[in-house]
């Protein structure tokens, strides 16, 4: 059955997963940070949260109360992210609508995305940066509003054994089903991932992992075969790379033939008042290099430009009338809802 398919996957994954334990960070290095954290939250039942094992029904109740206390805010900040045919999850982490998700949910910068809140509200968003190595990605709601959110936790404010809550839209968004809450414990941490036994499946990607104080500590990313292999991107990755991850896509303002894969990258239109126009790019110019990177066809140019943030001066090498010319363009900010590039 699929048993065989999944087995094949599982063996591959197991081999890969087997690599992981060798790389894992020592908790002791993170311990001082944790103590600081514990002090700062005196009102919380720190004793239960830090116990290795709940000792009584009262302890279990205290954990449940903690989940109940933050349940609504955790669910309200969990969104479904829809880009074309692709679906995933995300979590709003600021009032003005920044959303953490997984890189493989949004693909690349500068795309239009639909974001669904649990109450059925639909908000338009644009994808910002991605880091496919760690699977971190960010998008932002482009509409005005004050969005329900959960704050990011201080990086490394969690440790092995901590309780956590994962939410998201397993199997994709379903009408009438709110984000699905699952509980787990942190089974291991490295600088690049948090591993928990809060179960995930396709569609959960990009959804949040919370600590029991309702703060975002990670983003759902990938799974292994066992139900205790659920991997999340640590919130620290987003914090460290905030500037590059949160910048919108750059906009050049030229048109070409995306279906001409053999190249060259001939410009067929230049938008008025666009960065390309201002820099002197004209129709029938052939773009050879962008920021010293060779360009084979128009599609490559589009891909490359979307990786650059606006307001950056970039050297573009073009061929016009058999002469090579170098121009300097300052990219503008791309608005995915204008549909121009």
């Amino acid at each position: 059955m699929a048993g065989k398919v999944s087995q094949r996957i599982s063996i591959r994954q197991l081999i890969q997963l087997a690599l992981l334990p060798a790389l894992i960070v020592s908790w002791s290095a993170l311990a001082p940070a944790l103590q600081k954290e514990a002090k700062s939250t005196e009102s919380e039942p720190a004793s239960v949260l830090n116990k290795e094992l709940p000792e009584s029904i009262e302890d279990l109740k205290a954990l449940e109360d903690q989940v109940q206390k933050h349940r609504k805010s955790m669910m309200n900040a969990t969104v479904a992210v829809v880009i074309g045919n692709s679906q995933g999850s995300g979590v709003v982490i600021s009032k003005d609508g920044y959303i953490l998700t997984a890189a493989h949910v949004i693909g690349r910068r500068g795309q239009a995305a639909n974001v669904w809140f649990p109450d059925g509200t639909l908000a338009r968003a644009e994808t910002l940066g991605t880091d496919h190595e760690t699977d971190a990605g960010i998008l932002r709601i482009v509409e005005e509003g004050e969005w329900p959110f959960c704050a990011m936790a201080v990086p490394d404010s969690y440790k092995v054994g901590d309780w956590c809550i994962a939410t998201g839209h397993p199997g994709g968004r379903r009408e009438g089903r709110p984000p699905v809450i699952r509980i787990g414990r942190i089974n291991n941490v490295t600088p690049a991932m948090i591993r928990t036994d809060a179960t995930l499946v396709g569609g959960d990607s990009g959804g949040p992992l919370f600590d029991l104080k309702g703060r975002v500590i990670g983003i759902n990313s990938r799974i292994g075969v066992s139900t205790s292999w659920n991997l999340h991107v640590p919130v620290g990755i987003y914090e460290e790379n905030w500037e590059s991850l949160s910048s919108p896509a750059g906009f050049l303002g030229v048109g070409g033939d995306p279906y001409n894969r053999d190249g060259p990258c001939t410009i067929t239109s230049v938008s008025g008042n666009s960065p390309a126009f201002k820099a002197g790019v004209r129709v029938r110019d052939v773009i050879k290099k962008f920021d010293d990177k060779p360009i084979k066809n128009f599609r490559e140019l589009v891909e490359l430009v979307s990786q650059y943030a606006p307001n950056k001066a970039i050297e573009v090498e073009i061929v016009r009338n058999n002469k090579t010319i170098k121009l300097e363009v300052t990219l503008a900010r791309k608005d995915p809802y204008r549909g121009i590039r």
Partner: peptide, 29 residues
């Protein structure tokens, strides 16, 4: 079209990434 096509590569990349800092492994729960 659920976004899990990067499951395997991402995992591999993550492993490679994490290899570089030579830190003692933490114990599993």
């Amino acid at each position: 079209r659920l976004s899990d096509r990067l499951l395997l590569p991402a995992m591999l990349v993550a492993s490679i990434l994490a290899l570089s800092p030579a830190i003692a492994p933490a114990k599993d729960l």
